[in-house]
Simulated scan of single mutants.
Amino acid sequence: MEEARRIQALPPYLFARIDEKIAEAKAKGVDVISLGIGDPDLPTPDHIIDKLVKAARNPVNHRYPSYAGMLEFRQAVAEWYKRRSNIVIDPQKEVVSLIGSKEGIAHIAFCYLNPGDIALIPDPGYPVYGVGTALAGGVPYALPLKEENGFLPELDRIPEEIAHKAKLMFLNYPNNPTGAIADESFYMKVIAFAKKYDIIICHDGPYSEIAFNGYKPLSFLEVPGAKDVGIEFHSMSKTYNMTGWRIGWAAGNARVIEALGRIKSNIDTGVFQAIQEAAIEGLLGNQDIIGENRKIYQERQDIVIEGLTALGWTVESPKATIYVWPRVPKGFTSASFCELVLDKTGVVITPGNSYGEYGEGYFRISLTTNTKRLREALQRLQDNFGKFEF
């Protein structure tokens, strides 16, 4: 029963390994506080749940859904973009539903990469960009995201021969894991680069609605020329606390959307229509959840920044996302520091090198834990370590 080479080469998925470590610690009787996985602990709003219950009782929704997604769902996505960013999206040609954006991110590589083709991958970055590329037979080429450059890739440092061979570029702002943001001038450079080298831009934007102090992240699609060269992935997960519901979308360039829809129609049969109806309610209904989430995550971010400062860190407050991305103290690697913290305190943090070579020297804290447990986690660090040196 020999596995295919594409599977043999795959590392265990990052968060599967974290789950294993948590299970091992709990088995030893440790009271684990996980600041690892970016899975919102906040509940899905009642009006969305109520819509699901009602829609699930409709027998029409018990049959196979549309492969591209219900037109009503795609129209809701288009209305959401229009309301948020004044972007005009054709719901029939420029939107496809996804079983969560992760699925679409993995499948887009199969649409465009032949064996040996290159995809430009942010490093550090969400692991699926590289995994999807590798599964499709492509070659991931790392775009270093360095603190001194605001965690933005330096496009002019990409070698000409690599740029000419590249077919896809993945970007993600507001950024996981760094919390970095991107402005219009950066996106304009990206669009010009994509046009010069005939590269498709795949922008991953799930954190666009989790931003603080009046900051409003740009959608890639609102930048002039964006739809000429690419698409944007989004989902209901972080904005509406619906990670387990598995529904998202891709929007943008019609040819790319059609190609993604074509491969999906041959692989899956779409999202349960009752969930699509619930998502429509989320996109078009009461939007109070967005402001409520921002307040909660802002409070949690403040607790983490204050606690890290007391421990010796100098950390800027990210303008968006549910993450904080500090450096590890002197004398540690990302992995050794995170292992020590878990062993000494029962607190789970994610080593930066899990997100790529250029994540080494950092770790990620997720704000998806309530304020009481966040304070307890930071107190455990204080009790066990005092102050760190940097």
Rank of each mutant, 00 (worst) to 15 (best):
C338W: 09
P40H: 12
Y126T: 13
K372W: 07
R83F: 08
Y215Q: 07
V128Q: 15
K102N: 13
H62A: 14
F388A: 02
A9C: 09
A136C: 09
A310Q: 14
R327G: 04
G179K: 03
G230M: 05
G150I: 00
R364M: 15
P174K: 01
V30Q: 13
I49P: 01
K93D: 09
I231G: 05
V229H: 00
E232A: 08
Q276Y: 01
G100P: 00
K196W: 02
N213C: 06
M1E: 12
I303Y: 07
P217N: 04
P124A: 15
Y362L: 08
P159A: 08
V139F: 00
K51Q: 12
Y240S: 02
R255E: 13
I118C: 08
R84H: 09
H107N: 12
G38N: 15
T239S: 05
L35I: 09
N286W: 14
P40F: 10
P65E: 05
V315N: 04
L155Y: 07
Q301P: 04
E94T: 05
L168S: 00
Y64W: 13
Y323L: 11
A16K: 10
S66L: 07
E376D: 12
L342D: 06
D383M: 11
L135G: 04
G138D: 06
I322N: 14
D117K: 04
K195T: 06
H164Y: 01
L113K: 02
L260K: 00
Y67L: 10
H47P: 05
K195W: 02
M236Q: 02
R300L: 07
V341Q: 08
F73G: 02
I37S: 15
P177C: 11
T133M: 13
K26G: 03
A27C: 07
I199Q: 03
D156T: 11
V223N: 03
A25T: 06
K295E: 13
V190G: 04
K196T: 06
F170N: 00
S219F: 05
E299Q: 12
T314W: 10
A9R: 14
S317T: 15
K82W: 15
E161N: 11
R246L: 11
N176E: 15
T133C: 15
R373V: 09
R373S: 14
G132K: 09
P351M: 11
L218W: 03
L378H: 07
L42K: 08
F212C: 01
Q379C: 09
Q379D: 14
K51F: 07
D383G: 09
Y362N: 14
W325Q: 04
P127E: 15
A76P: 03
R364G: 09
I322L: 11
E232W: 00
W80K: 11
D117C: 04
P153L: 03
A119F: 09
H47M: 12
D46P: 08
L171S: 05
G307Y: 11
H164V: 06
I201G: 01
A25I: 02
P115E: 06
